[in-house]
């Protein structure tokens, strides 16, 4: 319980390895099986390649992969950041305005039902092959989970804390800064994390539909050339990108709300 006697980083790392040895063993086993199954079952190399070859061929094409990771990363991060910047104030406005809650909120819930990715071809046809349509599609994918969770977050202050705030006679602004905002952060982060997981999906699909660079473009082209080894290398970098974004958001969560139960559970 006490936080004063924290074990060293090394001790915690080794502790984690010991606790999750079964997972690590399974993980290694999975790739070993893949490596040898391809040989045993005599699967043609243009269908599936063993992991060792993916690493080898991927490394040979590293320059292109890194540049495309940068391209897709830029689309993803721009769309994600714009989604947060717009969704938070809009969520806040809806949470505190009865009129907006009765007009825009049900509208957003309806739009949420539409698979946003289905808009991708339209945006490509309207705006071309450049950066902008991809940013918009990532934005669309990220915006809804963030805004809906923000509305939930700002609307779910306990009755008790609401009464406490009223009994102090504090202004709405003081109440917001000292109680409503910190209380809302955990639920906001649920939206941030969900959006972070889906952001790269949006970017990749947008690139599938129409682009001349990026990891989605790369995966599509090399697959067309019967090069599953390079496709997997592309998928690997796309996964790294998603993990990176998710990692940054999780880090921000730990720094901003270290007191929250979901963070406490994962840090000790």
């Amino acid at each position: 319980m006490a936080s004063s006697d924290k074990p060293s980083l090394l001790m915690r790392a080794s502790d984690t390895i010991v606790r999750s040895w079964m997972f690590i063993a399974f993980f290694i086993g999975f790739f070993l099986f893949w490596e040898y199954a391809v040989v045993w079952f005599d699967i043609p190399r243009y269908i599936l390649t063993p992991p060792s070859l993916i690493v080898q061929k991927g490394a040979a094409d590293l320059d292109r992969l890194l540049y495309y990771t940068y391209v897709t990363g830029l689309e993803t991060v721009l769309g994600y950041v714009v989604a947060i910047v717009l969704a938070l104030p809009i969520g806040l406005a809806i949470a505190f305005s009865t009129i907006l809650r009765r007009t825009i909120y049900p509208f957003l819930v309806c739009i949420e039902m539409v698979p946003k990715i289905a808009f991708a071809p339209l945006f490509i046809s309207w705006l071309g092959f450049g950066l902008l349509p991809k940013v918009i599609i990532v934005f669309l994918v990220c915006f809804f989970p963030i805004v809906l969770n923000a509305i939930l977050a700002f609307n779910s202050l306990s009755e008790e804390l609401t009464r406490f705030a009223r009994s102090t006679g504090a202004s709405a602004w003081t109440t917001f800064l000292k109680i409503r905002l910190p209380a809302a952060l955990p639920q906001c982060f649920v939206g941030f994390k969900y959006a972070a997981i889906n952001a790269t999906v949006g970017a990749a699909i947008a690139e599938f539909i129409g682009s001349d660079e990026g990891l989605g473009f790369y995966i599509q082209i090399v697959t067309g050339n019967m090069r599953p080894d390079l496709a997997f290398a592309g998928i690997f970098f796309l996964t790294l990108l998603g993990l990176g974004l998710f990692g940054i958001v999780t880090l921000a969560e730990r720094l901003l709300i270290p007191w929250h139960i979901s963070v406490r559970r994962t840090t000790h």
Partner: peptide, 9 residues
């Protein structure tokens, strides 16, 4: 109050 108003942060 019945449930205390200590904030967790």
């Amino acid at each position: 109050f019945q449930d205390n108003t200590l904030v967790p942060w």
